[in-house]
Simulated assay, not measured.
Amino acid sequence: MSAELPAAGDPGAERLADAAVRYWNIRSVIGGASFLAACAGAVLIFRAEWMLFWGPWVVAPVVVLSVLLDVLMLNRVQFRSYSFTVTPEFVYVARGRLFRRSATIPTAQILNVETVQGPLLASMGLVTVRFTCLLDVDGVGPLTADRAERIRRAVLDRRADSEVAG
């Protein structure tokens, strides 16, 4: 059974794991905290007078506000606008609300399917799937491990079928 290829920009048939928003929120907080720690370290090391003003009164509030914007709004918008479809014939990924980006990769052009799971993804039971082609690498995720494995199997099985037939 062959699924119909979505038109460019149309949403895909599947969504990310619900925990994807929590994962992105944690990454935003870790990134903001790391940046603030690096700034504090620079202030302590260099002790420049201008840093003592700009650091706590300008940089820190801007970083905190940007992390709050990410956590309260942008990550949720990203989650709602991210979808994908995986069939034996193609992988279709659509993302973005204001600037819509969609990619269709025929499975015959996919050279490798890789699952990626760092410590944060592992602690949340999530995995990211990356597809390697000749000119580009695109991915889907975060997903649950069983969904990632189903996608990986579907693409690799189709690839094996086309190599045997060819």
Rank of each mutant, 00 (worst) to 15 (best):
S2W: 06
A3Y: 11
E4W: 05
G12A: 05
G12M: 06
A19V: 02
V21S: 01
R22K: 02
N25I: 02
N25P: 02
V29A: 09
I30L: 15
G32D: 08
A33N: 04
S34M: 09
S34K: 03
S34H: 01
F35W: 11
L36I: 09
L36M: 13
A37G: 06
V43Y: 13
F46A: 03
E49Y: 07
F53D: 03
W54Q: 01
G55D: 01
G55R: 01
P56A: 09
P61G: 06
V62I: 14
V63E: 04
L65Y: 04
V71E: 09
L74I: 10
N75P: 08
V77I: 15
T85N: 04
T87E: 06
E89Y: 05
V91N: 04
Y92P: 02
A94V: 00
A94I: 00
F99V: 07
R100W: 01
R101V: 08
T107L: 09
A108R: 15
V113Y: 07
V116H: 15
V116I: 15
Q117N: 11
G118H: 13
P119S: 12
L121E: 13
A122Q: 10
A122E: 04
S123L: 07
S123H: 09
G125W: 05
V129S: 06
L134K: 04
D136F: 05
P142W: 08
L143W: 03
T144P: 02
D146F: 11
D146Q: 15
E149H: 15
A154T: 14
V155M: 05
D157A: 14
D161Y: 12
V164F: 13
G166F: 09
G166M: 08
